[in-house]
Design a protein around this nucleic acid. Structure first.
Lengths: 208, 208
DNA sequence: TGTACATCAGTGAACGCGCGTTCACTGATGTAC
DNA sequence: TGTACATCAGTGAACGCGCGTTCACTGATGTAC
């Protein structure tokens, strides 16, 4: 037990999920074959079915992994942003700046979002997976709406504004920015969209 | 020749493309089988291959059809918006309002964008199709950027602003709104996002 | 106006390949006594 | 400390089905003369 080592591969299951995510973001779930995943992971087909009951179980595991990762990233950014101040507007502006930097420095050439990929193929998945997917975006809504409401209390905006839509715009803007970035193969689009969203938030709430 | 009628079905090719678009938006291109399309269209497999050399040719035809439709809708909305005035800001605000209404009243339960669907599966397509897809979003950029520049000349914004990002935000916001609408099965999200974008444009440029 | 030919919009049968899934088995590690 | 058994992380072979594609053919319409 001393070694706790790598029985076979070091966490094969995680490796499969990683490979699957990259493949799905490149060509979709249906076109991602188990065959190619096991070839890349260096196991046999039966090895795959030891980890996942069927292909549907792979989809669900991918979604759970994605949601967990998503939550972790957001948590970290917001807690870093709130570290040294307790002004909700300032905190959000810092968070958005951090977010733009994080997403601008991703190693992948054409990053994508699994939620978006799955939602454009959702007939392939069972209700379970679809519900999980909806949850991931609901968390964004809640998180940003809470923030914006706190900000609006302290800095009443000059004009009336649909706060829920403005909260959804955070996620919407990221999804849209990812798509434009992919279509035009321009990784600068997403960070610029986020910084633009940030500028708009500031323009709405910040007293002159 | 009098009848010019319906040789077999009335424009089978168009019917296939229509069916294919709906299927692709629901489950992706790879999972959309020729078999299901011909079953729905009421022809045989060979009939399909009379219209399309192979599945790749179907993809390209879908993209061309989508681009043409996209252009027509935008042309129409902008020309309606510009009909009775020549103020660029007012024109854009009217256009965005029309756009929100148009997209809010779509008959489909969960509308989607073929460009977005394809970009999340772009490994399935050849360079030809990918280039077409990029063009569709470039047209949005050009169109909105032109507008925004004209607006900025007449109404210099209070703060400096990244006009190109603001132009891209039009497309980005629609793509994002579609995704959120699908994920949450809420058709009101997209029109609200567009109206929010409109409010932001007004807040940036309109003199108090 | 009638005939010969061309084209358009398909039909029908067959193909091979790759996919997801199943099942009986295995060899290394961990645990009970 | 040694042995018996259980579990973990797989292997290997076989399966049937559906998919995209091909090929020879067809029957209705259009066109030339």
């Amino acid at each position: 037990m001393l070694e706790k080592a790598a029985r076979r591969g070091p966490d094969t299951r995680e490796r499969i999920l990683e490979l699957a995510e990259a493949a799905v973001l490149a060509k979709g779930f249906a076109a991602t074959s188990i065959e190619e995943l096991i070839a890349a992971a260096g196991i046999t087909k039966s090895g795959f079915f030891y980890h996942f009951r069927d292909k549907g179980a792979l989809a669900k595991a991918m979604m759970l992994r994605y949601i967990e990762h998503d939550k972790k990233v957001l948590d970290e950014i917001f807690s870093r942003a709130d570290e040294l101040n307790d002004d909700p507007l300032h905190g959000l502006l810092v968070a958005l700046k951090l977010f733009a930097e994080t997403l601008g420095n991703l190693p992948e050439a054409h990053p994508g979002c699994l939620a978006a990929s799955f939602c454009y193929q959702d007939q392939l998945f069972n209700q379970d997976v679809r519900t999980l997917n909806a949850q991931s975006v609901l968390r964004w809504r809640e998180r940003f709406l809470e923030r914006l409401q706190a900000i609006a209390r302290r800095y009443p905006p000059r004009r009336e504004i649909d706060l829920e839509a403005l909260a959804d715009m955070a996620a919407s803007n990221v999804e849209g920015g990812l798509i434009l970035g992919r279509l035009l193969k321009d990784p600068s689009i997403l960070p610029r969209q986020i910084l633009l969203y940030r500028d708009l938030i500031r323009a709405i709430f910040q007293p002159e």
